[in-house]
Design a protein around this nucleic acid. Structure first.
Length: 472
DNA sequence: TGCGGCTTATG
DNA sequence: ATAAGCCGC
């Protein structure tokens, strides 16, 4: 019989591991490892864990309809997986284990150790590329090296995609090819370079995250988006009050939906023409870019910046009161606070706002980007190590293809530009509804209605960040 | 996927 | 007075 190990690939369709197991023509069983201690260590948010569990419950029923039983292994950490999975495989008389690769290093080490354990007992293991549209290692420069800049990456990525369409991927090799090329150094901690305080919380079984859980709902959202909203995506996406984004990031993050499925629907909606220019596709390519980077530059997994030379010039400040105010949405800068209230209330934040609050934390408060990264992970329903890490390093100007350090967002100008009518602000800071739309952007707006005053002076903070960076 | 200060053009 | 363009940070 064949075993399929589910992780963040909670779907039936476009699931290479599941397809391969079924294609063997033997009995198939599914397996999942519950590792709450590890999830806590990774700062996985309650919202994400609830969504993942809700989807797992749906998947269990869907698998059963196909005659596939789901075995849940209640463990604590990734390091518990090899022995526990071996035991199940032996009990079930499994001849082979299938899974889809995950690219962060802790996951890859978990998979490598599991492979070695099973293979040493004569059980075959096969990894599959089910997460990315173009697998890592395929998108390379003329020199054969990894891309460090997004634009050339995306062009090469598209060429790879078109090539792959003509000649489908060679069938995956036996064993865990992807994880195996990593050096063995599991003792060193990853994702905790400076030992950030653990922020995660344990899964509490509360249903209903507000995001689609079953395939019918999920694929209806996708279809409606690519047909009705994607044509206006480029024009409207930067305005948080317009709700013009797909809202599919939570589903992508747990693999309820694959990036390939998104691309397939996008192509259909474009009738096969013009999809290559889609701005939404570009966002999917950013997702691919950040995953490829994690594989090509393993040090990133330790929260090492892509540009340590840039970070070396920055003095991070330990302003705990400012950090608390930022986390709570009490900075006195309306757009920043509205964004943080949205995150706290819903587990999601619009991407333009992620850039604004990240710039505020790293440049104006000059607080270490790792603290923002950890806090985002602990709250986001779409928390994803590769994308979150990439986004925070980009914002702090220490990432791959990041803006120069002296590009500092002015929160008020960003607010006036991307929330011109103050609608988004009013949605999350109801006190400011009393003010005229144009009056909602100013730092300290609405103090007469109980809003906090600005915790910093923008001009001063900007200047002191530039002085610090320039060695003043 | 900036900002801000400076210049110049225009009224 | 102010808008638009240039350019250093």
């Amino acid at each position: 019989m064949q075993l399929v190990w589910f992780r963040n690939d909670l779907r039936l369709a476009d699931n290479p591991a599941l397809s391969a197991a079924c294609a063997a023509g033997e009995r198939v069983k599914a397996l999942v490892c519950l590792t709450p201690e590890q999830w806590t260590e990774h700062n996985e948010s309650e919202a994400r864990q609830r969504y993942w569990h809700a989807r797992l419950d749906w998947l269990e029923q869907a698998l059963l309809k196909g005659g596939i039983e789901l075995i849940r292994l209640p463990l604590q950490r990734f390091s518990d997986c090899p022995d526990a999975i071996l035991q199940v495989a032996q009990q079930q008389g499994a001849s082979k284990l299938h899974f889809n690769y995950e690219y962060p290093l802790n996951e890859r080490n978990r998979d490598r150790l599991t492979c070695e354990r099973l293979e040493s007992e004569g059980i075959a293991v096969q990894g599959h590329h089910g997460d990315l549209i173009v697998p890592p290692g395929q998108v390379v420069t003329g020199q054969g090296t990894a891309f460090k800049v997004f634009t050339p990456f995306s062009k090469a990525w598209l060429r790879c995609l078109l090539r792959l369409e003509h000649e489908p991927l060679p069938s995956p090799v036996q064993g865990d090819e992807c994880a195996r090329d990593q050096k063995r150094d599991t003792d060193k901690p990853y994702r905790a370079g400076k030992r950030i305080q653990r922020l995660g919380s344990r899964y509490a079984p509360e249903p209903d995250t507000g995001y689609p859980v079953n395939d019918d709902d999920l694929h209806e959202v996708l279809q409606r988006f690519v047909h009705e909203q994607e044509p206006d995506y480029q024009r409207l996406r930067d305005f948080p009050a317009r709700h013009a984004t797909s809202g599919l990031s939570p589903a992508l993050t747990i693999g309820a939906l694959s990036a390939r499925q998104c691309l397939a629907r996008l192509k259909q909606a474009h009738d096969g023409d013009g999809w290559q220019q889609s701005t939404w596709l570009n966002e999917l390519v950013w997702r691919e870019f950040y995953r490829h980077l994690l594989v090509s530059f393993p040090e990133l997994n330790r929260l090492t910046p892509f540009r340590p030379d840039v970070e070396a010039r920055i003095t991070w400040l330990d302003n705990e009161k400012a950090f608390e105010a930022w986390k709570a949405g009490e900075t006195g800068f309306p757009i920043v606070d509205a964004a943080m209230k949205q995150l706290l209330a819903t587990g999601w934040m619009h991407n333009r706002l992620r850039m604004i609050v990240a710039s505020f934390l790293t440049k104006l408060l000059r607080i270490d980007w790792r603290r923002g990264e950890a806090f985002f992970m602990s709250k986001l329903i779409d928390g994803d190590f590769a994308s979150n890490l990439g986004g925070w390093q980009w914002s702090a100007s220490v990432g791959a293809d990041a803006a120069p350090y002296f590009r500092i967002f002015n929160p008020q100008l960003q607010s006036e530009k991307f929330d011109p009518n103050g609608e988004f602000i009013a949605e999350w800071l109801p006190e400011l509804r009393h003010l005229e739309p144009k009056a909602r952007h100013k730092p300290g707006a609405g103090q007469e209605y109980g809003r906090p005053g600005p915790i910093i002076d923008y001009k001063q903070a900007r200047q002191s960040a530039l002085d610090d960076y320039n060695g003043g």
